[in-house]
């Protein structure tokens, strides 16, 4: 017994380098981000310690509000289209009647791993070939193209975890397939839908370069705004990033809460 405890101690220490690394490269940068968002940079580049809300005011100034609303519009529309297309795909992929091979699932997920720059350039090539004018339509198309797999994946995962006996039970008790879907599958798939929405909406509005490339630099979104501000004012870039961080944090908490009720109740650590 004594020995076991001792060995536990030695292995535990192996986590220390990474804990230190995370403190410096994950936690500290976010704290600096918070600090910068409430400060100003002097003309010589050093940070002045005066507490200020000016950076946040810049973000919500009339000229930027248009960019924010445009980003939210693009985000909502993209998310909606991904949901409408992605849900049925995920539903049927998870259904043994329609899909028996894991290869098909993999084919839908693979494009996620290619960086969006290359995928966006590929869509741009398509538009060029079809002689489509670049604009809002092409930006939305590009966003849906880039983020559709991120909607399909979480919904597919939750639906394939649903116990098939629940659907059999519903059928035995006289529910039509349609009713069984509405009463059983749909409610149980909601956590997946929720995490799909966050995985599409947030990246869509914060992405950088897609909108510029697919609109001929006519449309800029939050990501392009940050890219510009990194050169102009790191403080404004920090404030914008911090707002994104908060929104992501809140959505993660909501998603985890829903998910906990469903999947990880029995998933204790030991």
């Amino acid at each position: 017994m004594k020995k076991r405890k001792l060995s536990g101690f030695t292995r535990k220490y192996l986590a220390i380098p990474y804990v230190v690394f995370m403190a410096i490269f994950v936690v500290l940068p976010l704290l600096i981000l918070l600090l910068y968002s409430f400060c100003e940079t002097r003309s010589d580049g050093s940070l002045s310690w005066n507490f200020t809300f000016d950076n946040y005011k810049t973000i919500f100034s009339p000229s930027s509000v248009q960019m924010l609303t445009r980003s939210i519009y693009v985000g909502l529309l993209t998310t909606l289209i991904c949901l409408v297309v992605g849900y049925p795909v995920a539903l049927f992929l998870a259904d043994k009647k329609y899909n028996k091979s894991p290869v098909l699932v993999m084919l839908f997920m693979l494009p996620m791993w290619i960086n969006f720059l290359l995928r966006t350039l590929a869509t741009k090539a398509m538009f060029e070939a079809m002689e489509v004018d670049l604009g809002m339509g092409t930006v939305i198309f590009g966003m849906v193209y880039n983020y559709l797999p991120f909607m399909i994946m979480p919904i597919y995962t939750t639906i394939s975890k649903i116990d098939p006996s629940l659907l059999e039970g519903a059928a035995d008790l006289g529910a039509s397939p349609r009713k069984a879907f509405v009463k059983v599958t749909l409610p149980l798939s909601l956590p997946g839908v929720l995490s799909g929405i966050t995985m599409v909406f947030m990246p869509t509005i914060t992405t950088f370069a897609i909108s510029g490339l697919l609109s001929g630099n006519k449309i800029s979104l939050i990501g392009d705004f940050i890219d510009l501000q990194v050169v102009n004012s790191l403080n404004v870039a920090s404030a914008m990033s911090f707002i994104i961080l908060i929104v992501i944090g809140i959505s993660m908490i909501v998603v985890n809460k829903y998910d906990k009720d469903n999947t990880s109740t029995g998933g204790g650590l030991w």
Partner: peptide, 12 residues
């Protein structure tokens, strides 16, 4: 978000 990680590392 990738961009937040990117900006925070630029600051660091």
């Amino acid at each position: 978000s990738e961009i937040v990680t990117a900006v925070s590392l630029v600051l660091l």
